Simulated assay, not measured.
Amino acid sequence: MNLENSIGIFDSGFGGLTVFSSITKILPDYNYIYLGDNARSPYGDHSFETVYQYTLECVEWLFSQGCPLVILACNTASAKALRNIQQLDLSKKYPHHRVLGVIRPTAEVIGTFTETNTVGVLGTRGTVKSGSYIIEINKFFPKVQVYQQSCPMWVPLIENGEHDQEGADYFVQKYVGELMAQAAEIDTILLACTHYPLMVPKIKAYISSEIKLISQGDIVANSLADYLVRHPEIANNLGRQGEQLFYTTGDTETFDQHASVFLGKEIQSRKLKR
């Protein structure tokens, strides 16, 4: 079963489901195909070249399934692969397709949340190493100081269902403490990984109640809604039966169990064999 003219949403694993959930709440009428590359997740520690290769393969598969528009609901893929895909692959092979990421929409608004002009970013090693958030935020808010902290243990904890267990507290306190040690003026923390919203209850235990904790789901969803208004040539060609399909390169039973946590409903995914 294919859903022609669907919006494709891609992540290296489960985290993109937080973005998927926000998008489908705001834009429920469109058709969606979600793809999680769980067999090769996490992407955070892979090289730029590997992330680009993996991401392009998944994007091209979504194109083949009838998705003219694909959202990279993955910060690592957005940081390491999006620019190359947009500048090299779309223009040469897919001129009528579009691929959007999660970094730029977030960077466009994050400066409106801070009163001290000091923002902290929690992300994977790959996202932090790319410096993408520092570059993009400074384009829109040149007075905002950005401090970053990688959290390499958080995605494995989340994808193994250990994020809400007592053992996760050590790594939450460690990474949050290392971020805040960089600048006491930080009053806004961006969760620059779509997995991290599941860590919010534990993160809040280690920060001041006055610090704003920003997740990306609603930001990206609102940005997509605005994009479709500004690009009716794309919006008018998208299917609107409200249908949803889920694919994973990993184990479907595991994916479905995790997806129920992210989405608050039961789903039945399909195995994509690579």
Rank of each mutant, 00 (worst) to 15 (best):
residue 129 K to W: 04
residue 97 H to V: 04
residue 173 Q to T: 08
residue 242 G to T: 08
residue 109 V to C: 14
residue 167 G to V: 11
residue 153 M to C: 09
residue 44 G to N: 08
residue 233 E to V: 05
residue 79 A to C: 06
residue 191 L to H: 07
residue 22 S to M: 09
residue 181 A to G: 10
residue 224 L to W: 05
residue 107 A to Y: 08
residue 168 A to F: 03
residue 208 S to E: 13
residue 42 P to F: 01
residue 270 R to Q: 15
residue 12 S to I: 09
residue 80 K to P: 00
residue 162 E to Q: 14
residue 31 N to R: 10
residue 118 T to W: 00
residue 251 D to Q: 06
residue 65 Q to I: 06
residue 215 S to I: 02
residue 15 G to K: 01
residue 220 V to P: 03
residue 234 I to P: 05
residue 238 L to Q: 01
residue 255 F to G: 08
residue 36 G to Q: 03
residue 242 G to N: 09
residue 145 Q to H: 12
residue 272 L to D: 03
residue 122 L to E: 01
residue 13 G to S: 02
residue 156 P to R: 04
residue 150 S to Q: 14
residue 125 R to W: 06
residue 75 N to V: 04
residue 83 R to A: 02
residue 195 H to F: 09
residue 94 Y to L: 07
residue 151 C to K: 04
residue 137 I to H: 09
residue 49 E to L: 12
residue 125 R to F: 06
residue 2 N to M: 08
residue 240 R to P: 01
residue 5 N to T: 03
residue 68 P to F: 00
residue 193 C to S: 13
residue 257 Q to E: 14
residue 61 W to I: 12
residue 200 V to R: 12
residue 2 N to Q: 13
residue 206 Y to S: 11
residue 142 P to G: 06
residue 176 V to Q: 11
residue 218 D to E: 12
residue 105 P to I: 02
residue 161 G to H: 03
residue 211 I to Y: 04
residue 265 K to Q: 15
residue 44 G to P: 03
residue 126 G to Y: 05
residue 34 Y to V: 02
residue 50 T to P: 00
residue 57 E to M: 15
residue 60 E to C: 14
residue 141 F to R: 11
residue 94 Y to V: 00
residue 255 F to V: 02
residue 115 E to I: 15
residue 184 A to Q: 13
residue 148 Q to E: 01
residue 268 Q to G: 04
residue 28 P to V: 10
residue 116 T to Y: 11
residue 38 N to C: 11
residue 125 R to K: 15
residue 95 P to A: 13
residue 162 E to G: 02
residue 88 L to H: 05
residue 127 T to L: 02
residue 103 I to E: 00
residue 2 N to H: 06
residue 118 T to G: 13
residue 74 C to K: 04
residue 14 F to L: 12
residue 15 G to D: 00
residue 167 G to Y: 04
residue 9 I to E: 08
residue 188 T to V: 13
residue 200 V to P: 07
residue 188 T to C: 14
residue 242 G to I: 02
residue 35 L to R: 05
residue 101 G to V: 01
residue 135 I to W: 13
residue 51 V to D: 10
residue 64 S to I: 02
residue 31 N to Q: 14
residue 33 I to L: 05
residue 178 E to L: 14
residue 138 N to R: 10
residue 228 L to Y: 03
residue 119 V to A: 10
residue 189 I to C: 07
residue 165 Q to R: 12
residue 261 V to G: 09
residue 29 D to Q: 09
residue 253 E to A: 15
residue 136 E to Y: 10
residue 142 P to F: 06
residue 103 I to A: 01
residue 74 C to S: 13
residue 245 L to C: 10
residue 170 Y to R: 15
residue 25 K to M: 07
residue 162 E to D: 12
residue 248 T to Y: 07
residue 165 Q to C: 04
residue 8 G to R: 02
residue 237 N to I: 00
residue 44 G to A: 02
residue 50 T to I: 12
residue 268 Q to L: 13
residue 20 F to C: 03
residue 183 A to E: 12
residue 192 A to P: 09
residue 106 T to R: 13
residue 243 E to V: 01
residue 214 I to D: 00
residue 186 I to P: 04
residue 61 W to D: 08
residue 223 S to K: 09
residue 108 E to S: 15
residue 1 M to A: 07
residue 106 T to P: 11
residue 132 S to Y: 03
residue 153 M to D: 03
residue 186 I to M: 10
residue 50 T to F: 06
residue 114 T to I: 14
residue 126 G to F: 05
residue 59 V to R: 06
residue 260 S to H: 12
residue 38 N to V: 04
residue 116 T to Q: 15
residue 127 T to W: 00
